[in-house]
Simulated scan of single mutants.
Amino acid sequence: MTKWKTIASSTTTPKENKTRAPASVAASPCSAATITVETFALQPVPRTRTTVGVGEKIKLTYSLGNATWTVSNGILSSPNGQTVTFEAPDRAASVIVKATGGGCTCTVTFTVIEPASVKMERAPGTGIFHANGIPSVGIKAEIFLEPDTVSFEFIEISEDDCPGVVTGYFVGTTLDGIRHAAHGAGTWVRVGPLVAGKGSKIIGRDTASSGHCNFGTPYSNGTFDWAIPWKFRVRSGADKVFATVHQRFTINAAGDMTVSKAGATGAAQLNDPNSTY
């Protein structure tokens, strides 16, 4: 029997590879639709932030040209245009701004926060008020609104009225129950730009002074306290209390006094020489 050996032919045609390249998909024109955010306030950075303070103003630009704008809260400078100004509302909120143009729509969400606290520090270059031989103390302070993660330079602040609460040496004196209304309460003051690490700086300084507390001897331990409500408002709108700031004075049996307010402090001993702010 004949045995045949099979040999592969050198002319065999290899099998055609019919694998196809993936089809390319054109990008949607709406993938280029964006809203650019730029805060009016130079601080804090970045100016593209979407967490803002009440009343903050932000420039918004639509990437595809002219758009129709809507907002869930707050104020827009115009309902139409490529660039508009958004003014945040006067209360904490989550706000959605929508732009529609060129057949596309996109949104940006802002978190709006209110001032939470007040911080003070002795004004640089100032001294301590004191009258020699009379229990007395006073300081001038710079004021900052916290937090420092947003700008509050588009609002105003004011102290409200409250009674003086006393103990010890001050009981039965003219400081016992004295109202803050006649000592600066009710005056609205503008807020300036933010100082990094401190907060939005109030335009102006605060004076915290005991006046002359010579209510007779012997001196003894005592305290005076104003628990002052602090309010804010946007564009002369409705006000809201956001913090209570204590302005405190103490006296000891030697007639020495201290003052403190929102972190700013000062002290004067009875026989210290006359001095001023």
Score class of each variant (00 low, 15 high):
210 S>C: 13
156 E>R: 09
171 V>N: 03
199 G>L: 04
212 H>M: 14
182 A>K: 12
175 L>E: 14
214 N>E: 15
197 G>N: 02
220 S>V: 05
150 V>P: 07
201 K>G: 07
205 R>N: 12
178 I>P: 00
172 G>N: 03
204 G>D: 02
212 H>A: 15
197 G>V: 08
160 D>Y: 08
167 T>D: 03
195 V>W: 07
175 L>P: 02
186 G>Y: 02
181 A>K: 13
200 S>V: 06
198 K>P: 06
183 H>K: 08
203 I>C: 04
200 S>P: 04
194 L>A: 01
149 T>W: 00
188 W>R: 14
160 D>H: 10
146 E>D: 04
158 S>I: 04
198 K>Y: 08
154 F>V: 03
177 G>N: 13
142 E>Y: 02
168 G>S: 10
184 G>C: 11
223 T>G: 07
164 G>P: 04
177 G>A: 12
158 S>W: 04
190 R>L: 11
186 G>D: 06
186 G>S: 00
192 G>M: 05
150 V>I: 11
190 R>W: 06
188 W>I: 14
167 T>I: 04
172 G>K: 05
218 P>R: 07
203 I>N: 06
160 D>I: 09
164 G>M: 10
189 V>I: 15
192 G>I: 05
188 W>F: 15
156 E>L: 02
213 C>I: 12
208 A>F: 06
220 S>R: 13
208 A>H: 03
171 V>S: 01
188 W>C: 15
146 E>T: 15
218 P>L: 08
184 G>R: 10
205 R>S: 12
174 T>K: 13
183 H>V: 01
149 T>S: 14
190 R>H: 11
148 D>W: 01
151 S>F: 05
173 T>S: 06
144 F>P: 07
147 P>G: 11
207 T>K: 06
214 N>W: 14
155 I>N: 13
162 C>L: 01
170 F>E: 00
183 H>G: 00
213 C>A: 15
194 L>M: 04
207 T>Y: 07
216 G>F: 09
164 G>H: 03
207 T>E: 08
151 S>W: 03
222 G>M: 09
169 Y>A: 04
206 D>Y: 13
207 T>L: 07
187 T>Y: 14
170 F>A: 08
191 V>G: 10
153 E>K: 07
165 V>E: 02
163 P>D: 02
149 T>H: 05
141 A>C: 10
152 F>R: 07
213 C>G: 09
156 E>I: 04
182 A>R: 12
174 T>D: 14
145 L>Y: 10
201 K>L: 12
156 E>G: 03
162 C>V: 05
219 Y>Q: 09
183 H>S: 04
175 L>M: 15
217 T>Y: 08
176 D>F: 04
171 V>D: 06
167 T>R: 03
146 E>Q: 15
147 P>E: 06
179 R>Y: 05
208 A>K: 01
210 S>Q: 13
151 S>T: 13
184 G>S: 10
188 W>T: 15
176 D>Y: 07
157 I>R: 00
176 D>R: 07
176 D>T: 10
142 E>P: 05
168 G>K: 08
209 S>G: 13
148 D>Y: 03
149 T>M: 06
214 N>A: 15
216 G>S: 09
178 I>W: 01
217 T>H: 09
217 T>D: 05
193 P>N: 12
145 L>K: 11
158 S>P: 02
142 E>D: 13
191 V>C: 14
151 S>L: 10
193 P>E: 00
216 G>L: 12
191 V>R: 09
162 C>I: 02
